[in-house]
Design a protein around this nucleic acid. Sequence first.
DNA 1: GGGCAGCAATAGTACGTACATTTAGGTACG
DNA 2: CGTACCTAAATGTACGTACTATTGCTGCCC
Lengths: 251, 251
Amino acid sequence: MATLDEVRLDRTSAQPLWAQLHADLLRRLEAGEFTRGFPAEGELREEYAVSRHTVREALRRIRAAGLVRSGRGRRSEVLATTIEQPLGTLYSMFAEVESQGLAQTSTVLRCGITKNEQAATALGLATDTDLFGLERVRLADGMPLAHDDVWMPASVAAPLVSSDFTRTALYTELERHGMSRPDGGRERITATLLGPEQAQQLGVRSPTAALLIERTGTLEGQPVECRRTTVRADRYALTMSFGPNGYHVGR
Amino acid sequence: MATLDEVRLDRTSAQPLWAQLHADLLRRLEAGEFTRGFPAEGELREEYAVSRHTVREALRRIRAAGLVRSGRGRRSEVLATTIEQPLGTLYSMFAEVESQGLAQTSTVLRCGITKNEQAATALGLATDTDLFGLERVRLADGMPLAHDDVWMPASVAAPLVSSDFTRTALYTELERHGMSRPDGGRERITATLLGPEQAQQLGVRSPTAALLIERTGTLEGQPVECRRTTVRADRYALTMSFGPNGYHVGR
DNA sequence: GGGCAGCAATAGTACGTACATTTAGGTACG
DNA sequence: CGTACCTAAATGTACGTACTATTGCTGCCC
């Protein structure tokens, strides 16, 4: 019952067989088809009617992406089902909060379309361009965690003015309106001394150090997001691990 | 004249042929043997007397490391001769300083073998283990940049006590004594308020925010370095870019 | 029931072949 | 002298085989 459809691969295509197989395996992984075990090389070979070499060429990339782990003698083991897009330290910080089971909410201080010279410049737009601005205090289980000020071009983010951000993440709302989240960007991380006003917003006494993260998010190379986040340093920190294969932010 | 010595590969070794070939090619790359062109697959095949498959298995890794670039029809092209190990935000920060042409020096506050309960615990050793400790203020062109306190097991780093660290980097000194620098680790980045003493050491007035980077460096999984660096946030920041293919710290 | 031996399954290594596709260079021709 | 074509070389793709090392399971024996 496994070899019903062997016709998923197009041998006349300009795309290599292994690339087609690779794409199909990624699709099936993401669909959760292999949660009860990843197929063996021989099974894939039979199912797709290709040589073992072709199967291994596709598997090589899936292994390299860290989605499955293999070893002599034992079947491949599924480690993850999606390639986690690294979206910067900010993303990983809030993901960390979430993973600790804390409820994330926000107090919205400002949400609307205005002009902002500084943010427009950072986005590479004319200084009088209409921008969507969202200013929040982010809370983890009711406890102030960060002050977040984000600007996006109104031409892109205008539909978001009517959204309720007290419980919803910006990117979730973006995707709900059919827009993509940034696929790249830059962050600048430094430390800052909290002034009386910000200290009060974050619920700490005034002369306190905080992490300041300035972020520019891009979509296909175009800057679409300019963000300034002040994070309480007494409760939260950035962690990163590194090794021969590069960096990993968080955990 | 190319096929003088074909005996570099040991077919009885437990290490795969491709791994031996891979190591030898890295060695020759680093030695600058291929600056006038990288050998073709067929030439390597002949020189090492292995199959094309084995050659390609080794080349695959060299390509993945970004050392050479290949393409249909044209010979492989050498892009770089050494693998740049990412050594964390700290490393990239000081590399940045260097790349700006600033002279890096240090004021050594302490350098010797003592015991340190906290550091020993962080290194996973008994609390009464002898440790090599080095405390410095790091300067860029004479201007204080960071306060750096690093601990390593004395069993590893004892030869370093007689080194002069006013102008030499720790890792350079490590390698001069035939030891390897860490190949991985973890960093924890947070913000801190400088006390009067540290503020004076860094040449700032007292209530100032600074970046605090706590780092554990490992070599082959074993912790070998425990570091605590306080960086002036008014002049220096961490920058990182990220995209679909992962993070890049610095620049 | 526990431990050990053997076996089958599986991925890793290593060899072979053939053809496709692209690039670079040389040659012939206008 | 330049262009167009052809050819050789190189890597990419795709197939085949065989053996090895490791794992996990099965079944036997104590």
